[in-house]
Amino acid sequence: MSGKVYDQQADPALDMAESTVQAGFDPKSWDMVGSLNLSRQLPTGQVLLDLAAAGRADIVVLTADLGRPTQVIQFGQRYPERYFNFGIAERNMIGAAAGLATTGLTPVISNYSFFLALMGLENIRNDICYPNLKVRMVGTHSGIAMGFYGTSHHCNEDIGALRTLANLSLVAPCDANAIRAAIPALIDHPGPVYFRVGRGRETPVYEAPPSFTLGGSNRLREGRHATIFAIGNLVSAALEAHDLLAKEGIELCVVDCYSIRPIDQAAILAAAKEHGILFSAEEHNVTGGFGAAVAEVLAAAGAGARLVRIGMPDAYSVLGPPTHLYRHYGLDGAGVAATVAKALRAG
């Protein structure tokens, strides 16, 4: 399932007509149009096109000058009257999404997570969550996926902020197939939904759209020594760690815990009971994030199991290429394997 080599073939659905990189250019060159080819795990636009083609005329798409990098431009090209680009004005966009929802439409916001969830937090709270409006928000490029773009373009705080908003459902589909499952599964959910996704360059986890239900999780590997509950990029890292640890005789159970709020309490408590030790893994500050949500479940139930939270430390990330950062912070397969092995040996 894991480790599938990421597909460099041109997306056949991608309209390259506007690209300036034509015949005569180096094959490695790319411009804004071609950049979409680099983010093949972010199929939001195609998923929404498929829903529209299936008769969903109520879906309208909003972005703040990020229709290309967040990959909803395809929807705008096909349905310009149902696609609203607000320019770089995120809070206005969030308010307008609320207004659109009151007229019976289903607005889908697609934007960088750090501007959507962090800048827009109060607007999301007052205008979308409090009135419990059917707005879907896709926050992309979460965590440290933007690497050397720096702290303004990192988002290690969105889970902590968003999971305190009453009425909001918060999920983290970890690759393209998970997004293909998640958006149709939740498009008609009666309240607001936030999809926390990556940059689209993640290692694929699923070969087909998986099961995706609010409060659910997907158990991807069995293991008799401990369970790791991972989200986002850390799901593929945990799968890699599973294989590395197997060579050392450690059997790690891997769960894609994509539903952050509500969270799969039964799965967490069962793992705690079974092994007495469990791991959470996220590309987010461990303070207040997904691991904290797991900790709340364990503490409230008096589960008495040890939880090792793998994630970003409570500090702003250094900058660098994303793969280097994942290695630096122990968020790649080897890093996760090392943390798990060390904790199990200490136990």
Partner: peptide, 19 residues
């Protein structure tokens, strides 16, 4: 629509008008 946080409602109104 609800209000209280000044500056929000014109955005909501324009969303309603679009819809």
């Amino acid at each position: 629509f609800s209000s209280g946080s000044i500056g929000h409602n014109l955005s909501v109104a324009l969303g309603m008008a679009l819809g």
